[in-house]
Amino acid sequence: MLQVKNINVFYGRIQVLWDLCLEVKEGEILALVGANGAGKTTLLNTISGIIRPSSGTISFLGRRIDNLPPHEIVQLGISHIPEGRRLFADMSVLENLEMGAYSRGSWKTRQKTLEEVFHLFPRLRERAGQPARTLSGGEQQMLAMGRGLMSKPKLCLIDEPSNGLAPKLVQEVFQIIRSLREQGITILLVEQNVRQTLEIADRACVLENGRIALEGCGEELLKSEHVRKAYLGL
């Protein structure tokens, strides 16, 4: 579904991603784990068009997207739920969700999509009129995910959804990610919460210093000596 081939990404003169290759298959949850500064968020930003790779190609459903601006990439069906939620704090929950459907095509069907999102996150319906900044951390993450779903994506890039959440809420978030996959949405999940991520992922990649260090199915990686030592502290 998504092919990333040999991309190199720089911030000024500093190279962040090195000749990186990655493939996301339709219908799976692919997890991307790694330490701080490994380049996970950079990779997501490159896929969604916020950053341009200096070489290499990215294609989605057979179409090259590495030269498209972000709004066209959203229109093709890739939704990016960014790290730290990035909500519109003073706009209401409903307005935040509506903005998620801004893209041509999804705007027309936004009422129907809104119902689906409310069904998935009943809390958001209760809070629809409130400014986003008045939500709790967990609710804000729900809103960020709901907003991401409003564009009716085929592929969701989810960056650190468990960041700053209580363990019980983390469970809930992972549950929802799993249910998205069941609805047919493909997911590229970036996480630092390695154990839980590997448990729900179909496949996983370990990113180290801007390169893919390991790749395999979730269980395999959980058993791998390297992952156990470096990320699980075992």
Binding site: S48, I50, P69, P70, H71, I73, V74, Q75, S79, H80, P82, R86, L87, F88, A89, D90, M91, E95, E98, M99, G100, Y102, S103, W107, R147, G148, S151
Partner: peptide, 23 residues
């Protein structure tokens, strides 16, 4: 219109506005 909301979202968080597909 949605452009009004888009303007407001740019004022609130321009990067997030780009993320969700606003040109």
């Amino acid at each position: 219109s949605r452009y009004g909301l888009a303007l407001e979202s740019i004022g609130e968080h321009e990067e997030a506005a780009a993320h969700i597909g606003i040109n």
